[in-house]
Simulated scan of single mutants.
Amino acid sequence: MPTYQCFDDLQLFFKENNIHPNIRFENMNENSIFSMVKHNLGISIIPEMIIPKGLESIKVIPLELEQTRTIGLAIRTPISPAVKKFTEIAENWCRFDKNIV
């Protein structure tokens, strides 16, 4: 299981749904997680947004119980041109990806 950002969300998800997984390994590096899954050393629950495109060797299976997270963008004003451009790109990306609300 990942031990970074989404760990607390997953623990709450497990608790709310009375799920008691047998977690054998925890790892901060998603590439290590992908490698372990690729080599049939287990499964993992990770945010879909961090799965790289083109990982044909790994099967992605959505959870039966929907789980979402809210991601916010906080900006201090006045904003620099770089922050303005990043904000535009992030907003367009969220609008383009229908899975992101």
Rank of each mutant, 00 (worst) to 15 (best):
L12V: 12
T77Y: 05
P2Q: 07
H39W: 04
F96T: 07
R69P: 00
E66C: 11
R76C: 03
R24V: 14
N31P: 02
F13W: 08
P21R: 02
E16C: 03
E66D: 12
E64P: 12
L10V: 03
Q67Y: 05
I51R: 02
E64C: 06
T68Y: 02
E30D: 15
N17L: 06
K38E: 13
N40Q: 11
R76F: 01
R24G: 10
E91T: 11
E64Y: 04
E16W: 02
I51H: 03
E56A: 12
C94G: 06
V60H: 07
T77W: 00
A82E: 13
Y4W: 07
S32K: 08
I58L: 08
V83E: 13
I61T: 11
A90K: 12
Q11A: 10
T77S: 10
I43L: 10
P52T: 02
E88G: 05
K98C: 00
H39T: 09
I51L: 09
P47Q: 06
N31W: 02
P47I: 05
E26Q: 14
T70H: 04
K53H: 09
P2K: 01
I19W: 07
F14W: 11
N31M: 06
L41Q: 14
I19A: 11
D9I: 12
T3M: 10
E30S: 04
I58C: 03
N92C: 01
C6K: 08
P52N: 07
E48V: 08
E91D: 07
I100C: 01
I46C: 02
F25E: 13
H20C: 13
I75N: 05
L55Y: 04
F34N: 02
I79G: 06
I33T: 03
P52Q: 08
P52C: 03
W93G: 09
R24T: 14
L55N: 09
M49E: 14
K38P: 00
F25Y: 09
G54R: 11
A74S: 06
